[in-house]
Design a protein around this nucleic acid. Structure first.
Lengths: 245, 245, 245, 245
DNA sequence: CATGAATGAGTATTCATTCAT
DNA sequence: TATGAATGAATACTCATTCAT
């Protein structure tokens, strides 16, 4: 397992200045160990005893923190996707263009696959097995989607369908990239997102323009204030820059 | 497990007039039993002994046909996706419009989810665990995609990316529908495919037009001649009807 | 299985005053059960579940102490041969004549076969399957052999060959006796050892004289001090009594 | 498995001019296959299905020739030791000196270990598991032993003990050599046999003299007449050449 | 809280043997 | 005789979970 990309570290590491209780630290160690084991053996191949061994604890200890094997994975899935999403959202919180926000989100997820295949594969596995992880992210995507619609950038008939297209496409692409099946990932990502944006109703030109904007940097640390809750669609309906129609 | 939709039955049932060897019959029974068990317990929860029990055989017998647990699932995954694909392709073999061919393919896969959730879920599970099942279908999609491109119906920059969008979106949508998370699936499918077709480069109007065409019936029996191999893109580049540009 | 000859009991029973941990007690029980089962079914016919059953434990427990079936047998082989050897060596620790020491060792091993056929057969089986059990004893024999050579009692050209003759002969004889194939075992042992001693270079008269000396009693308990490590050959080269040349 | 030393081949190959029935040929193939499998996987690891596979037959066929798994090994053990013994005996049938006959026998068995470790190990395994193989050879050794006694070359008090020493020593030595644990096997064999002969009552000088005599060649083919039955001791009590007393 | 020994049901896989063809 | 599919009991080993310390 490579060192985890900084943005994912938070839930495993205490934030700055935090003084986590011992209980909390143990829990973190367990999740950390789970990451390690799942990454190398897969969810099905991960046993409690192995997690305990890697965490340097006795098997019984695990049950002081999670009452079931499943609970660990679930907690991990939620923690990972929450953290990742939190950072992504934070990185584009100053962007006012819904289309760009969504585009940044997608790019970040694909970037993760290029950056660190093991982490991406881990995420994919957990996400398919524990759908609640995805459900937690959805509201943010939905908010951005609505914003873009309200701004006249997207034109979709069915919100749910749109989100399914976005997530389905991104997850599959992530898997392909992480498995090394994509030779020129830059071009691939470019083409892929263009198609998705087009599907969401943008003109090819607009889509290209959005894609051309720089990707805002990924925060290394947790936000000083908690990640903003998703705003209701249309909350800030000012015309986004570069909107063509 | 509901009775399987006719088109999927073939690989489990002897074709008409066929006189399968005993060995062959046993193998079919085993695959059939595997469907049953996987559908109710999931791939990970499926044990050899359970398969044997459901098939009415001794556990040892399984190993006369498959040398490994994995081998059964793999065989099943391949058999299912091959058969299904074969029928879908057969059902639109007379269609000359690449865009319509692709659209039919996608609609059929989503139709399966509405028609029989258990079968769809089974398929999804197997497809994620055994990617070769998908690889076997890809060439057909790729052929249709190229045909549509050659006919000026699609405009995609990266073939692989396009296929990933199509498959990723369809698999996710299939899961959503099969899990009963989609209330009005007709509208959902309509919206979803419109977006995908738009993403592939069609105008909204063309996309709508393609979607409006009737879905050809699904063959109940194996094709009298083997399913045609995918044609090279452009082999039949006559302008498709309804093409707008 | 008859009660084991006292001297073999130690590794299965806690020493006096010892307060073995629970883990240790379980381990001992397992080895004890293994003795039982191997004696009645042979090494090949001994299953983990049977061992557990006889030990009154769950099958899984076995694996908390031995990570492999083989490991149990190996541990048992080593424990048995080590303990037995320890006691034999202890019983003749005061004897200064190398030839007599070897003779005592051989007689004791053959005595075991008469005394308790099942234990002898067990030992033989384990020794052939797990040669390390023999390797652990060899150094003691080698030391005695060298002592006898240095004392001018033995005359052998090849130490290894000599030890192989001694062990090979004793093991075969042990098997014959334990299987009840030897009617007059006293005479048999007398004749056998005479031949071996002659083979090691003693005159028939000296050999007979050594054989005539009484067999020192077999200690029932562990030595108060650990069994002495084998002394280097010649360390005590004083002429042994009764040496003829 | 190296090609088997010629002398062992007979029972696997038809003798010259023989026209074995088909049944016989099949049986031979099975034994041949068994050799192969046992040599590489050990007796315990040898399954009927593997034997059949190597022999190019169906598992069921095996049971037309042997009614039990054990029966195969037994038949093989007997066939191998019988054949080997037959050739050894044949090779020294013209020797009139009992001591030399025994010495040749022992040297041949040890020679086998040097010549072909796999065959030696095979033989050892089978011999320990199927004692009847040894019982078949014993009469020949006993006859030679008696001859040597009658000729005043050996002086043993207990015939059975003597034979046990001979067999025990040779089997152990064979194992040591075959396992590559003996660096200078020529010297080792020399020393070992000298000790054994001394143990049987020869003077060192006589023992050395017997060992110095050349080893008669090993017949490649079956004897034209059946191997002679062991002669009663003393049948030919003429003084053996080189006898010293 | 942590420990880690014990549990015991569960799993994939093997294999001697049978028997209908 | 040969075949080879079927059998089904047996087996080593795993693992989530419990509980006394």
């Amino acid at each position: 397992m490579p060192p985890l990309p900084q943005p994912l570290a938070r839930f495993l590491l205490p934030g700055e200045g935090e003084r986590p209780s011992k209980r909390d630290r143990t829990r973190r160690q367990l999740l950390h160990a789970t990451v390690e084991v799942v990454a190398s053996r897969g969810v099905a191949g991960t046993s409690i005893q192995e997690i305990a061994r890697v965490a340097g604890m006795a098997p019984g200890t695990v049950y002081n923190h999670f009452s079931t094997r499943e609970e660990i994975f679930e907690a991990l899935a939620v923690a990972l996707s929450t953290t990742l999403n939190e950072r992504v959202v934070q990185s584009y919180q100053h962007i006012e263009d819904g289309a760009q926000r969504m585009s940044i989100g997608m790019r970040r997820f694909l970037w993760l696959a290029e950056e660190s295949a093991p982490w991406a594969l881990l995420l994919i596995q957990l996400a398919s097995a524990y759908p609640e992880a995805i459900e937690l992210i959805k509201p943010y995507s939905r908010a951005d989607l609505r914003m873009a619609q309200a701004q006249g950038r997207f034109h979709v008939a069915d919100e749910e369908a749109a989100i399914d297209m976005v997530f389905g496409t991104c997850m599959r692409a992530q898997a392909r990239i992480a498995q090394g099946e994509v030779p020129d990932s830059a071009a691939y990502v470019q083409a892929l997102l263009q198609m998705v944006l087009r599907g969401l109703g943008m003109s090819p030109a607009d889509a290209a323009e959005v894609m051309a904007r720089p990707l805002p940097p990924f925060a290394t640390h947790a936000p000083t204030e908690a990640a903003p809750a998703p705003r209701r669609a249309g909350a800030r309906a000012g015309r986004a820059p570069g909107s063509s129609a």
